[in-house]
Design a binder for these strands. Structure first.
Lengths: 353, 353
DNA sequence: ATGAAAGCGCTAACAC
DNA sequence: GTGTTAGCGCTTTCAT
């Protein structure tokens, strides 16, 4: 049975109008008494059409509740205008905010973002399957906001469509990236703590494979502290509560006077543990974090560094638009945006002995 | 020029292998020395194929870096297996968390969620365009987690695909919904405040069109307080800072002894203003909020109500899967999940005069 | 087990 | 301006 025959059958079976199955452009065209092409032109809003035709088609579409089949449209026209967004688990407030801002920026630029998320639990397989799915959707470009996808995994697609990494530095120099200036963050925070006179500081350093940005923060903090002549006690951590007990016990014994965390979330854990141990902050021990996106951070008096989420989001969108556009830039874009130090009540001078 | 001819031309021009344009199944089939059909069967992992054929096809696909064109696949097979998610601006921590949990639950159920977000700024038009886009993608089902799309706008699609609203109550009884039990939240919080002996309480009530759930919370709080014989001062608010100044000045003059907010975000604003006005919480005035999803809420001692985000997310996914499945439930699912009261340090007895 | 042929719903040249 | 025709890349009967 040919398509035409089937359509006729459907029509016949329901007394003059197809009911089941989605309404197609063909249905609209017939209802309006014009050809598919004309109907298509009207829906596309391009090409030459009489006002009369336009009106009839719109009316028919409205009457039938027609919705353009994006799938077919994109297949026929060869390629979508939407950009894919590969996102990390948005439970992390920093990623959640980045997600929001990316959407906002895209929206303002009249760009549609299709988001696929990948959980952390399956590093590798699933992440790649999401990547493949997005590629299979033939998106015009790709924004990658997760560390779960490595540069190598992106490599095969790099020359098919523009890819830009957002919110975290790219380790290879071949892929476009807009990221936070983690080193500036670490440097400013470390200098801030050192300038209060602390000489013995514990630093939570996230294991590199767990989170590269966090690793950079921790490692840089330790290095900068050392530059300032501070004795550093690094603690490698993976899980969210790792190392907390350790640094608190050091603080309780007076072996350190400050604790630096790579994220505010970890800072919160440390503050909780400090309170539980009867330690006053910053009377007995100073604490710092990083990210600065938590609502209420000011009320808690958190000492942190506000990452420039909005700026990174805007630049990401601006760049991906240029990249998918007709006059893409030459080299590889590697932008690094600094944020601002947020001094809080959690850092003070070390206790006198 | 026919498709075959074009392909040949492309091939010829590059010395035996097409370079530009995505690799198609046809390319893989040719490389493997089998028919498109066989290659398709292998990629689909269904139907009868020799191990030998399977091996050859996989090898060819790998070699060429083939990625299935989801667009074409879905067009040909008529329908995707993915579910669309229409999301509200995730800047709101409660929505951000819901988003995460929905993704997590979907992921665990091996369901792919395609997310489109809509900003608040354009109520109506854009929201609907996102809805249409998702419908145009011919998703198998739809999860709506934004109030920006009304029931009327969903109506035309209701019988085309299963639609379920998540995280907020549905106003009409025709659409499936899984939501927080806002009334339970308001009732428990109001009772909690009243039980501390407050007799004059200000309640921030969000305007209904701004946020229906917030409106229900506020209105119910006021009603329950009144049941307890409390004198209520309702303040209608829209923007995030609305009413804050007002209630603080009442508190400063001792006209009220407690302030109830419909969200924790508003609670934070009130706490800030109280601090700025030199008011002690809860010494001079008690404050409560709602949502309980803020990291660090415990450290701030926020009095709030934890909405059951995880539970709602899981139920949403479970239900949408049943609905798109072959044995969908009969009636309209309307589930309402209660959370838990979180007593904090921000609510105490009223000051003595 | 494998292949040939007929579309899925739409767009895009190319006539009329 | 409008219609006709030929596909987009894939799945899917239906033969073989």
């Amino acid at each position: 049975m040919s398509g035409e025959e089937r359509r006729r059958a459907r029509k016949a079976a329901t007394g003059g109008r197809p009911t089941h199955g989605p309404i197609t452009l063909e249905d609209v065209a017939r209802e309006a008494g014009v050809s598919r092409t004309s109907a298509s032109r009207v829906m596309l809003g391009q090409g030459k059409v009489t006002d009369e035709t336009r009106r009839k088609v719109w009316a028919a579409a409205e009457r039938l509740g027609y919705v353009t089949n994006v799938i077919a449209r994109e297949l026929a026209s060869g390629g979508s205008s939407t950009v894919g967004l590969l996102l990390r688990d948005a439970a992390n407030p920093a990623y959640g905010l980045l997600f929001t801002r990316l959407q906002k920026a895209a929206h303002e630029a009249d760009l549609t973002l299709v988001t696929l998320t990948v959980s952390d639990d399956d590093r590798g397989r699933k992440q790649v399957s999401s990547l493949h799915r997005l590629m299979g959707m033939r998106v015009a470009g790709l924004v990658v906001a997760t560390g779960g996808v490595t540069s190598e995994q992106l490599e095969p697609f790099r020359r098919r469509i523009p890819i830009i990494r957002s919110g975290r530095p790219e380790t290879t120099a071949a892929i476009h990236a807009v990221s936070y200036d983690e080193e500036d963050a670490a440097r400013r925070l470390a200098t801030h703590v050192a300038s209060h006179g602390h000489r013995d500081v514990a630093v939570l350093v996230t294991a590199e494979p767990v989170s590269y940005p966090e690793y950079v923060r921790g490692a840089t903090m330790a290095a900068v502290l050392a530059e300032h002549g501070v004795r550093v006690r690094p603690v490698e951590v993976s899980g969210p509560l790792d190392g907390v007990e350790q640094v608190i016990s050091w603080a309780a014994r007076g072996e350190i006077t400050a604790i630096m965390c790579p994220t505010d979330t970890r800072q919160l854990h440390v503050l909780r543990a400090a309170a539980a141990a009867g330690l006053d902050v910053p009377g007995d021990v100073s604490v710092s974090g990083c990210d600065g996106v938590l609502p209420g951070a000011d009320l808690l008096g958190l000492t942190t560094y506000r990452i420039p989420v909005e700026e990174v989001a805007q630049r990401t969108i601006r760049n991906i638009i240029r990249l998918v556009g007709d006059s893409p830039p030459d080299g590889v874009l590697q932008e690094r945006v600094p944020g601002t130090l947020v001094p809080g009540r959690t850092v003070g001078p070390p206790p006198r002995r």
